[in-house]
Design a protein around this nucleic acid. Structure first.
Length: 574
DNA sequence: GCCGTTTTCGGCCCGACTGTTTTCAGTCG
């Protein structure tokens, strides 16, 4: 097992122990160990071999033994025993907001509810409301969240899908009979969640069967859903399905364009072709009977009098008109990014030290790191009070004296309190070079209240960036309702930046509002919200959302130097 | 289950909210 898998087992054990009613501190020890293992920047087998695992704070003798067993044998007797004791459906209920381990235990042991389906039936029959500790409102709330869960079922985060899709493209590309291979569909357009993976490969006609056999037999393919000569679908262990289509190499580009969509984009492209006496389909582009050469997508667009439209823009948002006028933006790329904003460290709920995070940034070619740990109201996340802030700022000064050619900037992710005030007074805020203001509590406001709360916070001149504007968690939690236009208009007027939180579970600001914000001259910050070194690489998902929002590097705050960033923050404070 | 020690046992993060209660348990971040 690798680090990720071991961490997943430990997390699952923690949930199962909670449901069973074990010592909550034992539960937390497992959660902590999972976080530590996940965040390790060194090789785990080497650590175990040298006995250094025990030197890590939070890993004791018992945990080290469990980790070794998982590493060597890939399983753990205690984990198996827990799995036998608790039905899978019971475990799944933890995903429903409002249902925690205690209530789940009651449902399971007093009502014999062992699946999501059982639970829905019981809710509809009004049986939950009659139970001790439950009531009509709880029942309605569970039913509502069940509907959301069902709606999300069968959808996957872009990060989950990309990881699999990229591996598949590489493996298929290694097959000697595959000429070209790409993934297409909503994944290629950079949608924040996807239903499945669409793969396209070109092969000589006689070699299709061999390639399909290879595809169906790839490691990780848990189930072959269907298998034909031109099209096969395979399901992976996490439930995600990948469909592979095979075409001749001369059809690769039109097929790639067709499969990338979106539907509205394809309709508009076909209409445009017809207006020009041509015909576009997944098989090619034709003028009358003549099949026009189309070696790549660039050529396809050129035949239609258009410049290349990047996949992320192929929705239904004016991209064709812009391409015709030669006014498509030069979209931001990862290489435009100069520094990381919004990161956490061991000072609050992060896994790595400031120095480790800084060195990881430097190794990735970035020039600065903005450390923004939680403020004191976020007690659950070990938020900093004024005294610890002072100590942290001293540590940053020390690191800055030692790191050549790199800069750590002083920041805080300051909680926006219920009434829109900030968690620190102005004097404390003035000690930071920039301030990110975010909501982490009281999510149940209505739209008017929540919007007012945010705008009140933005009026504080020390606020540089608004963090995750809706607090949504993709596929699990709706954010608090926000009047996006009103918040963006206020940010524009006040000179506050809005973040695109690049954590693949958030991707908040939603890309659908990014263009509106940029058009109002709101500077956008693309922020990994990294709680560990590996979280820094989430920046790529933020870049995808920025591209979907038509952003250029000039519109993104962390494409500027540290000095320019500080100047941006200072402008408001004067 | 981990940690630290006045060292083998006691403490471990906490404030707010919700819905259920009639003083509090469960959940969340």
């Amino acid at each position: 097992m690798d680090k990720k898998q071991i961490a997943a087992v430990l997390k699952e054990m923690a949930v199962m122990m909670e449901i069973r009613g074990d010592n909550p501190f034992k539960v937390r020890a497992h959660q902590n160990a999972a976080r530590i293992i996940e965040g390790l920047s060194v090789d785990l087998p080497a650590l175990v071999k040298s006995g250094q695992l025990l030197e890590i704070k939070g890993i004791g003798k018992g945990m080290a033994e469990k980790i070794s067993a998982l590493l060597d044998q890939g399983e753990l007797a205690e984990h198996q025993a827990l799995k036998e004791a608790i039905p899978g459906g019971v475990l799944e209920m933890i995903k429903i907001p409002g249902l925690g381990p205690k209530k789940i235990k009651l449902l399971w042991q007093d009502m014999q509810i062992t699946s999501i389906e059982d639970l829905e039936h019981a809710c509809r029959a009004g049986k939950l409301a009659q139970m001790k500790g439950f009531g009509a409102k709880t029942e309605a709330n569970i039913l509502h969240n069940l509907q959301l869960l069902k709606q999300f079922r069968g959808r996957y985060l872009i990060s989950e899908a990309l990881e699999i899709a990229e591996a598949l493209v590489q493996q298929l590309g290694e097959h000697p009979r595959v000429i070209r291979c790409r993934f297409a569909g909503s994944l290629r357009r950079g949608m924040e969640t996807v239903k499945d993976i669409d793969l396209l490969a070109s092969t000589p006609e006689g070699d299709r069967a061999a390639v399909m056999d290879y595809f169906a037999g790839l490691p990780g393919a848990a189930e072959v859903i269907n298998k034909g000569e031109k099209k096969s679908t395979v399901r992976f262990a996490n439930g995600l399905a990948a469909e592979l289509r095979l075409v001749g190499d001369d059809q690769f580009a039109p097929a790639l364009h067709h499969l990338t969509g979106a539907k509205e984009h394809n309709v508009a492209i076909r209409q445009r072709a017809i207006q020009r006496g041509m015909k576009v389909s997944e098989w090619g582009i034709y003028k009358g009977e003549e099949r026009l050469p189309c070696p790549d997508e660039q050529t396809l667009f050129a035949h239609l009098g258009l410049s290349f439209i990047p996949p992320e823009l192929r929705e239904n948002r004016g991209q064709i008109e812009a391409a015709e006028a030669g006014q498509l933006p030069q979209l931001i790329e990862l290489s435009d990014i100069r520094g990381m904003i919004h990161t956490h460290s061991v000072w609050s709920d992060g896994v790595n030290t400031i120095r480790e995070m800084a060195e990881a940034c430097r190794a990735r070619g970035w020039k600065y790191l903005v450390v923004s740990d939680h403020s004191k109201a976020a007690a659950y996340a070990n938020g900093l009070d004024e005294q610890r802030v002072g100590q942290q700022l001293e540590e940053i000064d020390q690191i800055n004296r030692e790191l050549a050619g790199f800069r750590v900037l002083k920041s805080i992710e300051c909680d926006i309190l219920g009434d829109g005030r900030l968690d620190f007074d102005d004097e404390t805020l003035a000690g930071f070079e920039l301030v990110i203001a975010s909501i982490h509590s009281r999510f149940n406001m209505d739209e008017v209240q929540a919007t007012e709360r945010i705008i009140t916070a933005l009026k504080n001149p020390y606020v540089t960036i608004l963090g995750h504007p809706t607090g949504r968690l993709l596929l699990s939690r709706e954010g608090y309702p926000v009047n996006h236009e009103a918040v963006i208009d206020a940010a524009a007027e006040l000179g506050v930046s809005i973040e695109i939180n690049a954590n693949p579970r958030r991707l908040d600001l939603d890309w659908r509002y990014v263009k509106y914000a940029a058009d109002k001259n709101v500077a956008i910050s693309i922020c990994p919200d990294a709680h560990r070194i590996s979280g820094l690489d989430d920046i790529r998902y933020g870049i995808l959302m920025a591209r979907k929002g038509w952003l250029t590097a000039k519109q993104v705050l962390n494409c500027y130097s540290a000095e320019e960033l500080i100047r941006f923050a200072e402008k408001r404070r004067r």
